[in-house]
């Protein structure tokens, strides 16, 4: 059924299965037995069949016998689907072979009839087909049809008869053009859907890959950093051990980060007593305390507000303690009492 996933319109079964089918066909050994031959084969009594069906000769038996109806109850069906069978053949089933062959003789066309009248071909099924395997079953039918047409076409060709429709022969088809249009639309949409899915999948994979690469890079970077630090430590140790052998020179070898460190510390010293993010540069604490008269031109309140709420610079972190402020208990009591009062309320 689902051989037809290949997306090209109007050439469904083509490429994917063709090779396989071709291989199968190579294995084939087909026989076209003329009618008279197998007739002979049948007329010989087959003992095995007769054994299994002992009472198979009653012509006049009525059509339905209740026994067969009641039989299957005991046995449990596997599925309520279409192919439910009795486990064993019912004993009362009628099988009148002579009468069947008689009837066959009645209706049969003359044996020497030309093949052109019949157009029928017998194709060997190379092996038993599993019914429930849809793909295998359909493939078997397909190969049967394909083999049949090949044989037929060879026959036609030897007879010199036209069999392929010329490309300019237009006539009514079984399916209308509107219907074929519908089919085409469906095939195209299916193709598009498949393509889109493919694209999505690809994008997802790319993303995953990129993430991996990024992680790798990150790892490498951290490793490099670590290595560098390690090497510096080593170098320092060595220098210490060797007792500043290089003297000034070594000291001046001056790794940049050391300089940076120095400058950093100096800065810190400069800003000592001021919290890291105080935008007023320590003014707030001064002005907030006693020194209120330092205003030059500006109004006091403005100054105060500037110091309190900030004026330019980074906001926040203003109330964060520095090392000094933690040890300072100056305004502690006051604030405390105030707060307590509030709390009591």
């Amino acid at each position: 059924m689902d051989l037809r996933t290949s997306s090209l319109p109007f050439s469904l079964y083509s490429c994917c299965s063709n090779n396989k089918i071709h291989n199968l066909l190579m294995v084939y050994s087909y026989t076209y037995t003329p009618l008279s031959e197998y007739e002979m084969a049948i007329k010989k009594p087959t003992p095995k069949l007769l054994e299994t069906l002992p009472e198979d000769i009653d012509m006049g038996a009525s059509e339905s016998d209740p026994e067969t109806e009641s039989e299957p109850e005991s046995e449990s069906e596997s599925e309520g689907d279409e192919d439910v069978k009795l486990a064993e053949p019912s004993k009362t089933a009628i099988y009148n072979k002579e009468a069947i062959l008689d009837k066959l003789e009645d209706i049969r066309w003359p044996l020497d009839v030309d093949w052109m009248h019949k157009l029928s071909l017998d194709i060997d099924q190379e092996q038993e087909v599993d019914v429930n395997d849809d793909l295998a079953r359909e493939l078997a039918f397909y190969t049967q049809a394909l083999e049949g047409t090949r044989q037929a076409f060879v026959k036609f060709q030897t007879m010199g008869l036209p069999f392929l429709r010329p490309t300019d022969y237009y006539a009514e088809m079984v399916k209308t053009d509107t219907h074929m249009e519908k089919i085409k639309g469906r095939l195209l949409s299916e193709k598009r859907r498949i393509e889109e899915a493919e694209e999505r999948r690809k994008a997802r994979e790319n993303k995953k890959k990129a993430k991996e690469v990024q992680a790798e890079k990150q790892k490498e970077r951290t490793k490099q950093k670590k290595d560098e630090i390690e090497s510096v430590k080593k170098w320092r140790k060595q220098r210490q051990q060797s007792g500043f052998a290089g003297g000034e020179k070594d000291g001046d070898m001056g790794l940049p980060f050391e300089n940076g460190k120095e400058s950093d510390t100096s800065k810190k010293n400069k800003r000592a007593g001021i919290s890291a993010w105080d935008r007023s540069g320590g003014k707030a604490k001064q002005s907030g305390g006693k020194d209120r008269k330092g205003g030059n031109g500006k109004r006091k309140s403005r100054e105060f507000r500037d110091s309190k709420y900030g004026f330019g610079g980074k906001k926040g972190l203003k109330k964060q303690n520095t090392a000094e402020s933690t040890n300072e208990f100056k305004g502690f009591k006051k604030g405390d009492s105030f707060q307590n009062k509030k709390r009591k309320k």
């Binding site: 026989t31 037995t33 197998y38 084969a41 049948i42 069949l49 099988y95 072979k97 069947i100 062959l101 009837k103 066959l104 019949k118 157009l119 029928s120 071909l121 017998d122 194709i123 060997d124 099924q125 049967q144 049809a145 083999e147 049949g148 047409t149 037929a152 429709r165 006539a171 009514e172 088809m173 079984v174 399916k175 074929m180």
Partner: peptide, 24 residues
């Protein structure tokens, strides 16, 4: 899709020749 009214080729699997009722 095929022509309406073109004569079909009939292919039978070989197990049609097994039993009388299948032959019929």
């Amino acid at each position: 899709n095929h022509l309406k009214g073109s004569r079909p080729l009939l292919t039978f699997s070989s197990n049609f020749d097994k039993d009388p009722h299948w032959i019929l």
